[in-house]
Simulated scan of single mutants.
Amino acid sequence: MDVEGFVRDGYAVIRRAFDADTAAACREVIWSALESHGIDRADRGTWRSPKVEAECPPGGPFAAAAGGAALLDAVDTLIGPGRREAPIPAHGGMPVRFPSPDWPGDTGWHIEGNRWGGEDYWTDVRSTGRGLTAFFLFSDIGPGDAPTRLVAGSHLYIPPILAAAGPAGMSGGAAARRLRPSVLHRPVAHVTGRAGDVYLLHPFMVHTATWPHTGTTPRMMSQPGVAVPEGFALDGGDPSPVARAIVRGLGSAPA
């Protein structure tokens, strides 16, 4: 894993973090959850909505997907050993995106928040509660499958905005809206890959859903947070790459 690349760009990719059989087992659970929404995998006529939230139970193949040694080693490297709350919840609410030209209703630049603030999820400059955001790919995701879009290096511009908001912080959407327009014109990356890949994002990575989905199969991906309840120390004494990136963003305006 390229640790310095993570500090610079805000994300790392763990290819083949879990195997194809585990990914297939996870898809079976997801399809079962979609049945309660009247969706039949064999009947494309039931794929009417561009996005459906599938609630998947914990354990089983999702626990296996989140428990691989390479993934856990990468997480511990990025947030610091002994910090994460195990296990990583690869299950839970999952926005399944279906092939469709229709707007899914949730596009817009934001960072992930960590606590409910009444109308949106909020976070603070110490990222209290969240160490990383993990994107688990349970299906193959190509450029036409409505992949999530990331602004490379955007996590370095968020810390001054959150610091100015004080200990309470602000919502993830509000933080992104305060960025200079030039930041959102930086190079972008898309969350694409094979089923079994996992993207690990800095908690301040600015990203958005995309549309339309022009592929032929549903996009299945979960996006849990990796919990770090106490957040990160920003006095320079925290050597973790996540903290280093926050301190770097506070210390200077990146080019």
Results as ranks from 00 to 15, higher is better:
Thr192Gln: 14
Val29Pro: 11
Arg244Gly: 01
Gly144Glu: 11
Phe18Asn: 12
Ala163Thr: 07
Gly237Trp: 06
Ser49Trp: 13
Pro187Arg: 10
Gly169Thr: 04
Pro104Ile: 14
Met221His: 10
Asp145Pro: 05
Phe18His: 14
His207Pro: 11
Val242Leu: 02
Asp124Glu: 12
His155Pro: 06
Asp120Val: 03
Thr22Cys: 15
His202Cys: 04
Ala152Pro: 03
Glu119Trp: 09
Gly131Trp: 04
Asp238Ser: 00
Gly67Lys: 06
Val198Leu: 10
Ile79Lys: 01
Arg244Val: 01
Phe232Arg: 00
Val226Thr: 00
Ser240Trp: 00
Phe138Tyr: 09
His110Gly: 13
Asp102Met: 14
Val29Ile: 15
Met221Pro: 08
Gly173Thr: 05
Phe62Gln: 04
Pro95Ala: 09
Asp76Ser: 07
Gly215Ser: 09
Pro143Gly: 14
Asp40Glu: 15
Ala163Leu: 07
Arg178Trp: 04
His155Glu: 12
Gly173Gln: 07
Asp43Met: 14
Gly249Arg: 08
Trp31Gln: 07
Gly60Gln: 06
Ile141Phe: 07
His185Pro: 04
Gly153Ile: 02
Glu53Asp: 15
Thr210Gln: 13
Leu150Phe: 07
Arg130His: 03
Gly5Ser: 06
Cys26Phe: 13
Pro147Asn: 06
Ala174Trp: 03
Pro203Leu: 01
Thr214Cys: 12
Trp116Ser: 13
Ser127Ala: 14
His213Thr: 04
Gly80Val: 04
Trp103Ile: 14
Met221Asp: 10
Ala176His: 02
Ala227Asn: 02
Arg41Lys: 15
Gly196Lys: 05
Ser139Phe: 06
Ile111Leu: 13
Glu55Ser: 12
Ile141Gln: 11
Pro99Leu: 03
Ala189Asn: 05
Phe204Tyr: 15
Leu137Glu: 10
Tyr11Met: 06
Thr128Met: 01
Gly60Val: 07
Ala253Glu: 10
Glu28Tyr: 14
Asp120Phe: 05
Ser222Val: 12
Asp106Cys: 14
Pro229Glu: 05
